[in-house]
Design a protein around this nucleic acid. Structure first.
Ligand SMILES: [Mn+2]
Ligand SMILES: [Mn+2]
Ligand SMILES: [Zn+2]
Ligand SMILES: [Zn+2]
Lengths: 140, 140
DNA sequence: ACGGTGTTGCAACAAAGTTGCGTTTACTAT
DNA sequence: ATAGTAAACGCAACTTTGTTGCAACACCGT
Protein backbone atom coordinates (compact mmCIF):
# COMPACT_ATOMS: atom_id res chain seq x y z
CA UNK A 1 0.00 0.00 0.00
CA UNK A 2 3.06 2.26 0.01
CA UNK A 3 3.01 4.54 -2.99
CA UNK A 4 5.66 6.35 -4.96
CA UNK A 5 3.90 9.66 -5.30
CA UNK A 6 6.37 10.88 -7.87
CA UNK A 7 5.46 8.05 -10.22
CA UNK A 8 1.78 8.34 -9.49
CA UNK A 9 1.86 12.06 -10.26
CA UNK A 10 3.71 11.54 -13.51
CA UNK A 11 1.28 8.84 -14.61
CA UNK A 12 -1.70 11.08 -13.88
CA UNK A 13 -0.22 13.96 -15.83
CA UNK A 14 0.77 11.79 -18.78
CA UNK A 15 -2.75 10.40 -18.94
CA UNK A 16 -3.97 13.98 -19.33
CA UNK A 17 -2.02 14.24 -22.58
CA UNK A 18 -0.18 17.41 -21.57
CA UNK A 19 3.55 17.76 -20.96
CA UNK A 20 4.88 16.12 -17.83
CA UNK A 21 7.30 18.80 -16.74
CA UNK A 22 9.39 18.36 -13.62
CA UNK A 23 7.57 21.19 -11.89
CA UNK A 24 4.15 19.67 -12.46
CA UNK A 25 5.28 16.25 -11.32
CA UNK A 26 6.99 17.51 -8.19
CA UNK A 27 4.08 19.71 -7.15
CA UNK A 28 1.41 17.11 -7.77
CA UNK A 29 3.49 14.47 -5.96
CA UNK A 30 3.82 16.80 -2.99
CA UNK A 31 0.07 17.37 -2.93
CA UNK A 32 -0.71 13.67 -3.29
CA UNK A 33 1.45 12.97 -0.26
CA UNK A 34 -0.32 15.59 1.80
CA UNK A 35 -3.45 15.04 3.82
CA UNK A 36 -4.62 18.59 4.10
CA UNK A 37 -5.03 21.65 1.94
CA UNK A 38 -1.75 23.54 1.60
CA UNK A 39 -1.00 27.08 0.53
CA UNK A 40 1.12 28.31 -2.33
CA UNK A 41 3.57 29.58 0.28
CA UNK A 42 3.90 26.22 2.03
CA UNK A 43 4.58 24.48 -1.25
CA UNK A 44 7.18 27.07 -2.19
CA UNK A 45 8.97 26.57 1.11
CA UNK A 46 8.97 22.82 0.83
CA UNK A 47 10.37 22.97 -2.69
CA UNK A 48 13.14 25.39 -1.82
CA UNK A 49 15.66 22.69 -1.01
CA UNK A 50 15.59 20.90 -4.35
CA UNK A 51 15.99 22.65 -7.66
CA UNK A 52 14.31 25.99 -7.13
CA UNK A 53 10.98 26.77 -8.77
CA UNK A 54 9.79 30.26 -9.59
CA UNK A 55 6.71 31.46 -7.71
CA UNK A 56 4.96 32.39 -10.95
CA UNK A 57 5.51 28.90 -12.30
CA UNK A 58 4.06 27.53 -9.08
CA UNK A 59 0.97 29.68 -9.51
CA UNK A 60 0.62 28.54 -13.11
CA UNK A 61 1.11 24.88 -12.30
CA UNK A 62 -1.46 25.06 -9.52
CA UNK A 63 -3.92 26.71 -11.88
CA UNK A 64 -3.27 24.03 -14.47
CA UNK A 65 -3.68 21.22 -11.93
CA UNK A 66 -6.95 22.79 -10.90
CA UNK A 67 -8.21 23.03 -14.49
CA UNK A 68 -7.29 19.40 -15.09
CA UNK A 69 -9.16 18.44 -11.91
CA UNK A 70 -6.09 16.88 -10.32
CA UNK A 71 -6.48 19.35 -7.50
CA UNK A 72 -9.09 21.60 -5.97
CA UNK A 73 -8.86 25.05 -4.48
CA UNK A 74 -10.14 25.94 -1.01
CA UNK A 75 -10.87 29.58 -0.25
CA UNK A 76 -10.72 30.73 3.34
CA UNK A 77 -10.99 33.85 5.44
CA UNK A 78 -7.34 34.84 5.22
CA UNK A 79 -7.61 35.44 1.45
CA UNK A 80 -5.12 32.69 0.74
CA UNK A 81 -5.92 29.85 -1.61
CA UNK A 82 -5.18 26.34 -0.48
CA UNK A 83 -4.83 23.29 -2.70
CA UNK A 84 -5.47 19.63 -2.24
CA UNK A 85 -5.11 16.69 -4.57
CA UNK A 86 -8.27 14.99 -5.79
CA UNK A 87 -7.63 11.35 -5.05
CA UNK A 88 -10.34 8.84 -5.93
CA UNK A 89 -11.51 8.58 -2.35
CA UNK A 90 -11.64 12.34 -2.18
CA UNK A 91 -14.37 13.64 -4.48
CA UNK A 92 -14.83 17.20 -5.48
CA UNK A 93 -17.72 18.33 -3.38
CA UNK A 94 -17.30 18.15 0.33
CA UNK A 95 -16.96 20.42 3.31
CA UNK A 96 -13.81 21.92 4.79
CA UNK A 97 -12.63 22.59 8.30
CA UNK A 98 -10.69 25.73 9.05
CA UNK A 99 -8.87 26.23 12.35
CA UNK A 100 -9.48 29.78 13.56
CA UNK A 101 -6.20 29.83 15.45
CA UNK A 102 -3.50 28.23 13.27
CA UNK A 103 -5.49 28.68 9.98
CA UNK A 104 -4.86 25.05 9.02
CA UNK A 105 -7.42 23.69 6.57
CA UNK A 106 -8.49 20.09 6.16
CA UNK A 107 -11.06 18.49 3.91
CA UNK A 108 -14.02 16.76 5.52
CA UNK A 109 -14.31 13.99 3.03
CA UNK A 110 -17.19 12.28 4.76
CA UNK A 111 -19.60 15.14 4.55
CA UNK A 112 -21.43 15.63 1.31
CA UNK A 113 -22.64 19.19 1.55
CA UNK A 114 -26.12 19.60 0.17
CA UNK A 115 -28.61 22.42 -0.02
CA UNK A 116 -32.18 22.30 -1.24
CA UNK A 117 -33.63 25.28 0.56
CA UNK A 118 -35.39 28.19 -1.15
CA UNK A 119 -33.61 30.72 -3.34
CA UNK A 120 -34.98 34.07 -4.55
CA UNK A 121 -36.97 33.91 -7.78
CA UNK A 122 -34.78 33.49 -10.84
CA UNK A 123 -31.72 32.36 -8.89
CA UNK A 124 -30.20 29.03 -9.77
CA UNK A 125 -27.89 27.04 -7.55
CA UNK A 126 -24.94 25.34 -9.18
CA UNK A 127 -22.77 24.18 -6.34
CA UNK A 128 -22.42 24.80 -2.65
CA UNK A 129 -19.50 25.29 -0.34
CA UNK A 130 -19.54 24.52 3.35
CA UNK A 131 -16.85 25.50 5.82
CA UNK A 132 -16.79 24.46 9.44
CA UNK A 133 -14.72 26.77 11.61
CA UNK A 134 -13.31 25.98 15.00
CA UNK A 135 -10.21 24.69 16.72
CA UNK A 136 -8.11 21.79 15.48
CA UNK A 137 -6.73 19.07 17.72
CA UNK A 138 -3.46 20.93 18.34
CA UNK A 139 -5.09 24.27 19.04
CA UNK A 140 -8.11 23.00 20.95
CA UNK B 1 -42.37 52.03 7.98
CA UNK B 2 -40.08 54.42 6.13
CA UNK B 3 -36.82 54.83 7.98
CA UNK B 4 -34.21 57.54 8.13
CA UNK B 5 -31.15 55.36 7.94
CA UNK B 6 -28.88 58.22 8.88
CA UNK B 7 -30.67 58.67 12.22
CA UNK B 8 -30.92 54.93 12.79
CA UNK B 9 -27.21 54.52 12.18
CA UNK B 10 -26.30 57.35 14.53
CA UNK B 11 -28.53 55.95 17.26
CA UNK B 12 -26.95 52.51 16.94
CA UNK B 13 -23.45 53.92 17.12
CA UNK B 14 -24.22 56.17 20.09
CA UNK B 15 -25.68 53.20 21.94
CA UNK B 16 -22.33 51.48 21.48
CA UNK B 17 -20.68 54.22 23.54
CA UNK B 18 -18.04 55.04 20.94
CA UNK B 19 -17.69 58.24 18.94
CA UNK B 20 -20.34 58.89 16.32
CA UNK B 21 -18.14 60.28 13.59
CA UNK B 22 -19.59 61.35 10.28
CA UNK B 23 -17.79 58.56 8.47
CA UNK B 24 -19.19 55.86 10.72
CA UNK B 25 -22.69 57.22 10.49
CA UNK B 26 -22.65 57.59 6.72
CA UNK B 27 -21.20 54.15 6.10
CA UNK B 28 -23.53 52.35 8.48
CA UNK B 29 -26.51 54.25 7.03
CA UNK B 30 -25.49 53.18 3.56
CA UNK B 31 -25.21 49.56 4.65
CA UNK B 32 -28.55 49.67 6.48
CA UNK B 33 -30.21 50.89 3.29
CA UNK B 34 -28.68 48.09 1.26
CA UNK B 35 -30.16 44.65 0.79
CA UNK B 36 -27.07 42.80 -0.23
CA UNK B 37 -23.45 42.48 0.78
CA UNK B 38 -21.38 45.30 -0.73
CA UNK B 39 -17.65 45.65 -1.24
CA UNK B 40 -15.28 48.27 0.08
CA UNK B 41 -14.93 49.50 -3.49
CA UNK B 42 -18.69 49.92 -4.01
CA UNK B 43 -19.01 51.89 -0.80
CA UNK B 44 -16.10 54.10 -1.77
CA UNK B 45 -17.68 54.86 -5.13
CA UNK B 46 -21.06 55.66 -3.63
CA UNK B 47 -19.48 58.02 -1.11
CA UNK B 48 -17.39 59.86 -3.66
CA UNK B 49 -20.05 62.49 -4.36
CA UNK B 50 -20.43 63.81 -0.84
CA UNK B 51 -17.50 64.85 1.30
CA UNK B 52 -14.76 62.44 0.32
CA UNK B 53 -13.64 59.72 2.68
CA UNK B 54 -10.15 58.19 2.67
CA UNK B 55 -9.98 54.52 1.73
CA UNK B 56 -7.98 53.70 4.83
CA UNK B 57 -10.64 55.30 6.98
CA UNK B 58 -13.23 53.22 5.16
CA UNK B 59 -11.28 50.06 5.93
CA UNK B 60 -10.97 51.08 9.57
CA UNK B 61 -14.64 51.96 9.91
CA UNK B 62 -15.71 48.67 8.35
CA UNK B 63 -13.45 46.79 10.74
CA UNK B 64 -14.90 48.72 13.66
CA UNK B 65 -18.47 48.09 12.52
CA UNK B 66 -17.65 44.42 12.28
CA UNK B 67 -16.13 44.31 15.76
CA UNK B 68 -19.19 46.03 17.17
CA UNK B 69 -21.41 43.51 15.38
CA UNK B 70 -23.26 46.18 13.43
CA UNK B 71 -22.09 44.47 10.27
CA UNK B 72 -20.77 41.14 9.13
CA UNK B 73 -18.15 40.21 6.57
CA UNK B 74 -18.74 37.81 3.71
CA UNK B 75 -15.73 36.20 2.08
CA UNK B 76 -16.05 35.01 -1.48
CA UNK B 77 -14.01 33.47 -4.27
CA UNK B 78 -12.77 36.76 -5.70
CA UNK B 79 -10.85 37.46 -2.49
CA UNK B 80 -12.85 40.61 -1.83
CA UNK B 81 -14.61 41.15 1.46
CA UNK B 82 -18.23 42.19 1.38
CA UNK B 83 -20.16 43.79 4.20
CA UNK B 84 -23.77 43.74 5.24
CA UNK B 85 -25.58 45.38 8.13
CA UNK B 86 -26.88 43.12 10.88
CA UNK B 87 -30.50 44.18 11.16
CA UNK B 88 -32.71 42.41 13.69
CA UNK B 89 -34.37 40.31 11.02
CA UNK B 90 -30.93 39.39 9.72
CA UNK B 91 -29.10 37.33 12.29
CA UNK B 92 -25.46 36.49 12.17
CA UNK B 93 -25.42 32.94 11.01
CA UNK B 94 -26.96 32.20 7.68
CA UNK B 95 -25.92 31.12 4.22
CA UNK B 96 -24.83 33.30 1.32
CA UNK B 97 -25.43 33.18 -2.40
CA UNK B 98 -22.67 34.13 -4.78
CA UNK B 99 -23.29 34.69 -8.49
CA UNK B 100 -20.49 33.07 -10.46
CA UNK B 101 -20.94 35.52 -13.33
CA UNK B 102 -21.42 39.02 -11.86
CA UNK B 103 -19.92 38.13 -8.43
CA UNK B 104 -22.88 39.71 -6.63
CA UNK B 105 -23.41 38.35 -3.12
CA UNK B 106 -26.68 38.19 -1.21
CA UNK B 107 -27.50 36.81 2.20
CA UNK B 108 -29.91 33.87 2.39
CA UNK B 109 -31.60 34.93 5.58
CA UNK B 110 -34.01 32.02 5.63
CA UNK B 111 -31.45 29.29 5.78
CA UNK B 112 -29.94 28.49 9.12
CA UNK B 113 -26.83 26.62 8.23
CA UNK B 114 -26.21 23.70 10.51
CA UNK B 115 -23.69 20.91 10.73
CA UNK B 116 -23.62 18.00 13.11
CA UNK B 117 -21.57 15.52 11.15
CA UNK B 118 -18.39 13.87 12.39
CA UNK B 119 -15.12 15.75 12.88
CA UNK B 120 -11.67 14.24 13.42
CA UNK B 121 -10.80 13.46 17.02
CA UNK B 122 -9.94 16.56 19.01
CA UNK B 123 -11.48 18.97 16.54
CA UNK B 124 -14.16 21.31 17.80
CA UNK B 125 -16.66 23.13 15.62
CA UNK B 126 -17.43 26.72 16.52
CA UNK B 127 -19.39 28.07 13.58
CA UNK B 128 -20.12 27.08 10.04
CA UNK B 129 -20.28 28.96 6.79
CA UNK B 130 -22.32 27.92 3.81
CA UNK B 131 -22.12 29.47 0.36
CA UNK B 132 -24.41 28.60 -2.49
CA UNK B 133 -22.92 29.41 -5.88
CA UNK B 134 -24.79 29.78 -9.13
CA UNK B 135 -26.40 32.40 -11.34
CA UNK B 136 -28.48 35.29 -10.06
CA UNK B 137 -31.77 36.39 -11.65
CA UNK B 138 -30.05 38.87 -13.97
CA UNK B 139 -27.30 36.50 -15.07
CA UNK B 140 -29.40 33.32 -15.24
C1' DA C 1 19.49 14.45 -32.81
C1' DC C 2 16.14 18.19 -34.31
C1' DG C 3 12.58 21.41 -34.31
C1' DG C 4 8.24 23.41 -32.97
C1' DT C 5 5.40 24.61 -29.38
C1' DG C 6 4.15 24.47 -24.72
C1' DT C 7 6.39 25.95 -20.39
C1' DT C 8 9.45 28.57 -17.51
C1' DG C 9 11.87 32.54 -15.30
C1' DC C 10 12.25 37.20 -14.63
C1' DA C 11 10.63 41.76 -14.08
C1' DA C 12 6.99 44.64 -13.83
C1' DC C 13 2.23 45.29 -12.61
C1' DA C 14 -2.23 45.11 -10.03
C1' DA C 15 -5.67 44.67 -6.39
C1' DA C 16 -6.78 44.42 -1.62
C1' DG C 17 -5.62 45.46 2.66
C1' DT C 18 -2.21 47.32 6.62
C1' DT C 19 0.89 50.41 9.30
C1' DG C 20 3.03 54.73 11.06
C1' DC C 21 2.57 59.24 12.09
C1' DG C 22 1.25 63.97 12.27
C1' DT C 23 -3.28 66.57 12.10
C1' DT C 24 -8.11 67.08 12.94
C1' DT C 25 -12.44 66.14 15.27
C1' DA C 26 -15.77 64.70 18.65
C1' DC C 27 -16.79 64.52 23.11
C1' DT C 28 -15.89 66.13 28.09
C1' DA C 29 -14.89 69.19 31.65
C1' DT C 30 -14.67 73.71 32.87
C1' DA D 1 -19.18 78.83 24.75
C1' DT D 2 -14.15 77.37 25.34
C1' DA D 3 -10.46 74.66 25.89
C1' DG D 4 -8.33 70.13 26.67
C1' DT D 5 -7.81 65.45 25.25
C1' DA D 6 -8.03 61.04 23.36
C1' DA D 7 -9.96 58.90 19.54
C1' DA D 8 -10.37 58.99 14.72
C1' DC D 9 -8.72 60.66 10.26
C1' DG D 10 -5.77 61.52 6.01
C1' DC D 11 -1.84 60.67 3.64
C1' DA D 12 2.14 58.11 2.14
C1' DA D 13 4.52 54.10 2.25
C1' DC D 14 4.34 49.20 2.69
C1' DT D 15 2.83 44.17 2.45
C1' DT D 16 0.63 40.20 0.64
C1' DT D 17 -1.35 37.61 -2.93
C1' DG D 18 -1.84 36.90 -7.38
C1' DT D 19 -1.33 38.32 -12.75
C1' DT D 20 0.76 39.63 -17.31
C1' DG D 21 4.27 40.13 -21.13
C1' DC D 22 8.04 38.40 -23.17
C1' DA D 23 12.37 36.22 -24.20
C1' DA D 24 14.74 31.85 -23.18
C1' DC D 25 14.21 27.04 -22.54
C1' DA D 26 12.86 22.09 -22.51
C1' DC D 27 9.59 18.40 -23.55
C1' DC D 28 8.13 15.38 -26.88
C1' DG D 29 7.03 13.63 -31.63
C1' DT D 30 9.42 12.91 -35.68
MN1 LIG E 1 -11.25 19.76 -0.07
MN1 LIG F 1 -24.84 37.62 5.35
ZN1 LIG G 1 -5.21 24.80 14.66
ZN1 LIG H 1 -25.21 37.66 -11.33
Amino acid sequence: MVINFQEQAEAMIRRAGDRATSGRVRILALLLAEHRAVTHHEIEDRLSGEHRLDRVTLYRVLEWLNEKCFVHRVVSDDRVWRFRANVETHPHHHAHFECTRCTKVICLDDLKAKYEGPLPAGYRSHEIELTVKGLCAECG
